[in-house]
Simulated assay, not measured.
Amino acid sequence: MIYNNERPAILMFQDGTYFEGIGIGATAKITGEITFSTIPGSGYIEALTDSTFKDQIILFTYPSIGNYGVPDKIRDEYGILRQFESETIKVKGIILNEYCEKPSHYESIRTLEDWLIEENIPGIQWIDTRIITQKFVKEGSKLGLLQVYNAGEKPNLEELKKAVQTIETPSNKNIAANVSVKKLKKYIKPDSKGSVVIYDLGAKNNIIRTLLSKNLEVVLVPYLYDYDMIMKLNPNGVILSNGPGNPTILKQSIRLARKLIENNVPTMGIGLGHNIIGLAAGAFCYKMTAEHRGGRTTVENDTDHCYITFQNHGYCLKDINKNGFAELFHDKDDNTNEGLIHESKPIFSVAFNPEASPGALDMKEPIFEKFIKYMEVD
């Protein structure tokens, strides 16, 4: 590739496949698991700050990203950041077909690249994202590296080929514990009709906001909290949140879910929390080849009703009909499980993100209202 004043950048996979592009964001070298997101031109701010993507390198399939810039960090009436799903960018790096250098939006105060540089996140553009996405769909997410060089610097491909072979799989790391809050945090709602504990594995801001908007007090607790510690808070219900990483290694979380099930505590799982409830119930959890990473994915329930959902998960459950649990939703395209429900206890879970930030609103009200009904606080 011929560079003028641009910064060279290389994306390389462990199998030796590499792509040359132009660097954006920070001048840096990163390694990790590379996956994708099919969100449209809007939603990249929420995706980049979604803790479910913690430590991953994200390829955006939409052809142009950055078109509306980045807004100021303004907090809502609850003290929660608007448009950002956490306080900082959670991805390690980004892969784009094309970066929009001149955004246009009345709320924009800086470009996407300015934000990436501020948080030391590298990116690469002018990449054929279609061919890489096809590779992911057929073979699954990949380990690899991304390096952005200074202008005029020549990439050393042989050095990168050696470095890419030393990358360790993240599947044995407890990434969720790293993004969980370090101490209890309360969102007090005057005259609330009930209290919800969110067991924080990387909870998105819009989950908290949605509960507060329904006149519920929210208590965010760290990963290290166990059943007894949570019950001392006297909640009306518990949510096991979304989050990153491999659910099967979160033994403490699975023990917590098992106790919640045994004691009939109104409980809802989202994303990673869904898989943890499934594991606690005896289901089998596996890493998907064709991961669900997008804003327009259709799920279906047993009444043949279809709903458009936002999804961001790379693990899935099977053998779910155990210990009183049954399927609540399945994916319309590949028939994989997207939800569980207990036949007699107030416990259910969904693999998708019902809070819809970004994404479709089809399931926002039905899912949260179902949880509120289980808590019997109306």
Score class of each variant (00 low, 15 high):
Met1Asn: 13
Tyr3Cys: 04
Phe13Asn: 05
Tyr18Ile: 03
Glu20Gln: 10
Ala26Asn: 02
Phe36Val: 13
Ile39Arg: 07
Ser42Asn: 14
Ala47Met: 10
Thr49Leu: 05
Lys54Cys: 04
Lys54Ala: 08
Thr61Pro: 09
Tyr68Asn: 10
Lys73Ile: 02
Lys73Ser: 01
Tyr78Trp: 14
Leu81Lys: 04
Gln83His: 12
Glu85Thr: 08
Ser86Glu: 06
Ser86Gln: 06
Thr88Trp: 12
Lys90Trp: 08
Lys92His: 03
Ile94Met: 00
Leu96Asp: 06
Lys102Pro: 06
Pro103Trp: 02
Glu113Gln: 05
Glu113Met: 01
Glu113Arg: 03
Leu116Lys: 00
Ile124Phe: 00
Gln125Trp: 11
Ile127Thr: 06
Thr129Gly: 00
Thr129Asn: 03
Gln134Glu: 13
Val137Asn: 11
Ser141His: 07
Lys142Glu: 09
Leu145Met: 11
Gln147Leu: 07
Tyr149Thr: 04
Leu157Gln: 08
Glu158Trp: 12
Ala163Gln: 15
Val164Trp: 10
Thr166Ile: 01
Thr169Asp: 09
Asn172Met: 09
Ala176Gly: 03
Ala177His: 11
Ala177Pro: 01
Ala177Cys: 01
Asn178His: 13
Val181Arg: 02
Lys185Gly: 08
Lys189Pro: 11
Pro190Cys: 01
Asp191Val: 03
Asp191Cys: 07
Gly194Cys: 00
Gly194Ile: 02
Gly202Ile: 04
Lys204Ile: 11
Lys204Cys: 12
Lys204Arg: 14
Asn206Tyr: 15
Ile208Ser: 07
Leu211Tyr: 09
Leu216Glu: 05
Val219Tyr: 02
Tyr225Met: 07
Asp226Thr: 08
Tyr227Phe: 15
Ile230Arg: 00
Pro235Ile: 04
Val238Cys: 02
Ser241Val: 08
Lys251Val: 10
Gln252Ser: 15
Gln252Lys: 14
Arg255Pro: 09
Arg258Gln: 14
Leu260Ala: 00
Thr267Asp: 03
Met268His: 09
His274Pro: 07
Ile277Ala: 05
Ala281Asp: 10
Ala283Pro: 10
Arg296Trp: 13
Glu300Pro: 01
His305Gln: 15
Tyr307Leu: 00
His313Val: 06
Cys316Ala: 14
Ile320Arg: 12
Glu327Asn: 14
Glu327His: 08
Asp331Val: 00
Lys332Pro: 03
Asn337Gly: 11
Glu338His: 05
His342Gly: 00
Glu343Gln: 15
Glu343Tyr: 12
Glu343Ile: 13
Ser344Gln: 04
Pro346Asn: 00
Ile347Lys: 02
Phe348Gln: 08
Ser349Glu: 09
Ala356Gly: 05
Asp362Asn: 10
Asp362Gly: 08
Phe368Gln: 06
Glu376Phe: 07
